[in-house]
Simulated scan of single mutants.
Amino acid sequence: MFTLTRRAFVGAALCAAALPLRAANAYPNGRPVRLIVPYTPGGGTDTVARAIAAKTTSVAGWSVVVENRPGASGNIGLDLVAKSKPDGLTLALGQTANLAINPALMPNVPFDPAKDFSPVVLVASLPVMLVVKADARWKTLADLVRDAKAAPGELKQALAGSGTVGHMAGELLAYQAGFKVLNVPYRGAAPALNDLLGGNTDYMFATPQAAQEMLKGKLLRPLAVTAPARLPILPDVPTVAESGYDGFAAVDWKAVVAPAGTPPAVIDSINAALVKVLADPATVAMFTAEGSTTLGGAPDAAVRYIQEEQQKWARLIREAGIQTAT
């Protein structure tokens, strides 16, 4: 009797111990996870998504499939996720533009980022840099601001697109420095940089990814970066903040979000896997090489950060009277 009872007790204990593991492993239960990229293949967001998807597959054993749904400045892909079943099987790699800027800048955004998504984890942040032609007369940010103030609305700022972080960085600088900005929008960073090199515009806030080859070729001169601290890949380039604009920061952050209503246990499972991926030395090295900083953290941290960014850009857009650049 004793032996049977003991066996029954041990068996019950083992079953009880296995319950949390089974619960944790219930997601995604062999089903593929879609990671929606709201931009075209080959871009910066797409590259990050595919690297994370591959690493998550190897770390967690999940089948993570990247699906590109571009259009409307990223709004089409995000709207698809906002309206998806909240089971954690459809996620999005959102970013500053579509989660924090577009809703305040564009009148017809089809989703409410504050209500329609459950943030899962912050992935990484990437600053932009103010660049001019290598033979431009401006050697410092102060030089450029001086001329912009002396000739209001005459210096032309190239934009990779309306509502991008580069667009907002330029607007923030103009607002804080007190000059009028003349925006010239393009369909992407490549044509914007090409026209800058051609002398059709005067300056641009571009990502290190987009400008790196032109910087290496000495075709562009970087005047400042928008990160809170200097970049390891550009240690000699000052920040906008240290150039006289205390507290200035404009970064293109990325975050994985799920549809609102996704169960907290599922959110936590995805977060745990992605935090492990982001802490991997190979992942950190990949991001550092392009000028990015890996983030990670708990879902609550992502919620707070995104809310702060939404409030920051909405305030700037309202106070400076910023409109979409056409």
Rank of each mutant, 00 (worst) to 15 (best):
W62M: 09
A114L: 11
E67I: 05
P107I: 02
I76P: 08
A104E: 01
S118L: 02
D116N: 14
N108K: 10
L99C: 01
V66D: 11
P113A: 13
G88L: 09
V120M: 03
A114W: 05
G74A: 10
A104R: 02
S73Y: 12
A92C: 11
K83Q: 14
N68H: 15
S84W: 00
G77R: 13
Q95F: 10
A104Y: 02
S58T: 11
D87P: 08
S118M: 12
V59P: 01
V81P: 01
P103T: 00
D87Y: 05
D87N: 14
A60T: 09
N75M: 15
A82Y: 10
S63I: 08
N75F: 05
V120W: 07
G88D: 06
S84Q: 00
L89T: 06
G61F: 11
L80R: 12
V65F: 08
P119R: 03
K83L: 07
M106S: 03
E67N: 15
L99W: 03
L105G: 01
G61V: 10
P110C: 11
M106G: 00
G88V: 06
P70Q: 07
L122D: 13
G94I: 02
R69E: 09
A114P: 08
A104I: 03
A100N: 01
S84A: 15
V59T: 14
A97D: 14
S63K: 15
V120H: 12
V59I: 12
N75E: 11
L80K: 07
V66M: 09
V64D: 06
A104C: 02
L93R: 01
L78P: 03
R69G: 07
P119I: 03
E67D: 15
G71R: 05
D112C: 10
A104K: 06
G77M: 05
N102W: 03
K115C: 05
I101R: 01
V81R: 01
A97F: 04
S118A: 15
K115P: 03
G71C: 06
P113S: 08
N102K: 05
G61M: 07
N108G: 03
G94T: 02
A82M: 06
E67K: 07
L93Q: 00
F117M: 02
P103L: 01
N108F: 12
G77V: 05
N75K: 09
N108C: 02
I101L: 03
T90S: 13
E67P: 10
G74T: 09
F117T: 03
V65C: 12
D116Q: 10
A100K: 00
